[in-house]
């Protein structure tokens, strides 16, 4: 029984060691700012199209679905509120993180995994660079900056899509839509909507790096790491979003 648990516990421990080292490296020289910019471009700008598309269609589908339920109470005018709250609090951060995880975590895992199996990571250490400093920390910093920004973009595009649906299909006026959307949002929502992507950035970047750097067993191993990274990152995003929501609910109820 103890032996069964040993593996997973050691893995989690290794992950936290990597997280600690990567975070500590932010404050230690040498800083590889070129790599940070490069990763920001790859993670942030590169993910823009898929984030805009998912944001748009999730906002549109929310407006369509919710309008049916709201129609039963004669409250179709409040579609804006439902779309805004569900996007800013939940769907925006989750879907953005999932899309970026699918794209970036797997990409990082396969890139670092290939470097591992071709001994490039060892070569890096042999030639005087710390792979965590050079490879992991820039990816973490880039993700932590870009993921909240991508989420904001997804939120706006989603709310905009909700407006398009409301005005053209649901006979809601522009004014009605935007004022209900605007009034629905309180600081707690916005805070929650920005804390989530920040936490997910750690998951997306570090899970990819973690599985990449652990790769063994040639090209087959790279494939395995890539899948593992993507699956683990996606599941963790769902688990963490639940706990963050709980914490915010608890905190806001404690205030009252």
């Amino acid at each position: 029984m103890l032996d069964l648990l040993k593996g997973p516990v050691l893995t989690v421990q290794d992950f936290f060691i990597l997280t600690g080292t990567a975070v500590r490296n932010i404050f230690r020289s040498p800083h590889y700012s070129d790599d940070i910019v490069l990763q920001m471009d790859a993670i942030g700008v590169g993910s823009m199209p898929i984030v805009v598309l998912t944001g748009f269609f999730s906002g549109a589908v929310m407006a369509l679905q919710m309008s049916r339920a709201l129609a039963q109470y004669g409250q179709v005018g409040r579609t804006g509120m439902i779309v805004a709250i569900s996007l800013v609090r939940e769907l925006g951060p989750d879907l953005t993180a999932l899309m970026v995880a699918g794209r970036t975590s797997s990409g990082i895992a396969s890139e670092l995994g290939s470097m591992k199996v071709t001994e490039q990571i060892d070569a890096m250490r042999a030639l005087g660079t710390d792979p965590i400093q050079k490879l992991v920390t820039p990816r973490l910093v880039a993700a932590a900056v870009m993921l909240p920004l991508l989420t904001i973009i997804a939120d706006f595009v989603g709310i905009f899509a909700g407006w398009v649906i409301s005005v053209f299909f649901l006979n809601v006026t522009t004014r009605q839509y935007w004022s209900s959307a605007w009034r629905a949002l309180v600081w707690n929502d916005v805070a929650q909507g920005l804390v989530k992507p920040f936490v997910f950035a750690f998951v997306v970047a570090l899970i990819g790096c973690f599985y990449g750097l652990r790769t063994t067993g040639g090209t087959q191993g790279v494939g395995r790491s890539t899948t593992q990274a993507m699956v683990t990152a996606s599941v963790l995003i769902f688990v963490l979003t639940y706990f963050i929501t709980q914490i915010f609910l608890y905190a806001s109820s404690a205030q009252m």
């Binding site: 290939s114 470097m115 071709t118 490039q120 060892d122 070569a123 042999a126 030639l127 005087g128």
Partner: peptide, 16 residues
Amino acid sequence: IRSKIGMLFQESALFD
């Protein structure tokens, strides 16, 4: 120490 050692890795290990 490593700066005084040269190592040629199997399969070269050049950075792609």
